[in-house]
């Protein structure tokens, strides 16, 4: 039901693309991250909850239609429905059904709880298209709420030492997931602009997030900034701050040390290895298509464990796809 074209995954029976890398006539969007939602297509279809985030990404003039989770829409000859993927606000797996055959394109997903989005919903299908960002058994996440406590602890230690705490977190999803669980009473809270822009959209969808503080002692502050801000002039105002990064990649010491960070907090919006295997298992799919990430490792593992797996090479994701 799907084939790989230059712009990405294409469904001939429905004449649409899913998360195309290039402008197309009709694009179905799993979620609003830059490597999935791109500007320039003539028509978009996404989830109701995710619409505002997708719009922020593809532009005010774009023609975007949306569906509530679980609702079915016929596109061409295909029945299309969006189901929660648990990745970020409004993220979805897309279920496609045609002549009794069911495919599910997972987009990015995670199974662990996240107060800012609907939990991942397992859907039975014949073919499951999965991501593989963290598809190695070294990637195993602990309890996210516990990680947020570690962040608070780190912030407290820095306040006592009289230095600001700069936490790099991907501004769409990750930052809000942390903020929604954070005890922000410890000191001034400062958002870099990219983070606050997305915070506003989240608040618009009814997600409570702490507000930035006006003024206050910068050495006591917690600063939430996009990872791209590391080394920027903007950060200089916070003096000798402690720098930390919240990302699944922080599971590996080398990635933290290479970035010269003081701390790495292991928290990811992607499924870890056990999560990927669980989701694939629960889909009941006989065929698994594996996209961006450790594709080769996951394909080989699945094949050695009795599944039919296919490596799907999509166009290289944008820089920001790193998480």
């Amino acid at each position: 039901m799907l084939e790989v074209r230059e712009a990405g995954l294409y469904c001939p029976q429905g004449d649409f693309y899913i998360d195309p890398a290039l402008p197309v006539a009709r694009a179905l969007i799993t979620h609003a991250h830059g490597d999935h939602a791109r500007a320039g297509s003539q028509a978009y279809l996404t989830t109701r909850t995710g619409e505002a985030l997708v719009r922020a990404r593809v532009g005010d003039e774009a023609a975007i239609e949306s569906l509530p989770y679980g609702a079915t829409r016929r596109v061409g000859e295909v029945d299309v429905a969006f189901h929660p993927a648990g990745h970020i606000l409004g993220s979805a797996q897309i279920r496609l059904e045609h002549a009794g055959e069911v495919w599910v394109v997972s987009g990015d997903y995670k199974l662990s709880p996240d107060p800012t989005c609907m939990p991942f919903e397992p859907i039975r299908c014949h073919t499951f298209v999965t991501e593989s960002t963290f598809a190695l058994p070294i990637f195993r996440w602990g309890d996210a709420a516990g990680v947020v406590r570690e962040i608070e602890e780190w912030w407290r230690g820095n306040r006592e030492a009289g230095r600001a705490s700069v936490l790099f977190a991907y501004p769409v999803g990750k930052a809000q997931r942390i903020l929604s669980q954070l005890d922000a009473s410890g000191g001034p809270l400062i958002y870099q602009e990219a983070v606050e822009r997305v915070n506003a959209i989240y608040r618009g969808q009814g997600i409570a997030l702490p507000h930035a503080t006006e003024g206050g002692d910068l050495s006591q502050a917690l600063v939430i900034a996009s990872p791209q801000m590391q080394g920027s002039a903007w950060l200089r105002r916070f003096g000798k701050a402690s720098m930390a990064f919240a990302s699944g990649w922080m599971r590996i010491r080398g990635t933290r040390r290479r970035r010269s960070l003081d701390r790495g907090f292991v928290i990811s919006d992607h499924a870890d290895w056990p999560g990927l295997l669980q989701a694939i298992g629960e889909s009941g799919a006989e065929n698994v298509w594996v996209t961006h990430g450790y594709v080769g490792a996951l394909v080989r593992w699945l094949e050695e464990n009795g599944k039919r797996a296919v490596a799907v090479e999509l166009k290289l994701p944008a820089e920001e796809a790193a998480e």
Binding site: L136, I138, I252, G254, Y294, W301
Partner: peptide
């Protein structure tokens, strides 16, 4: 074996 190798390649230690 092979998967250990993949992991080592990612971790480097």
């Amino acid at each position: 074996d092979w998967l250990f190798g993949e992991c080592y390649h990612a971790v480097g230690d």
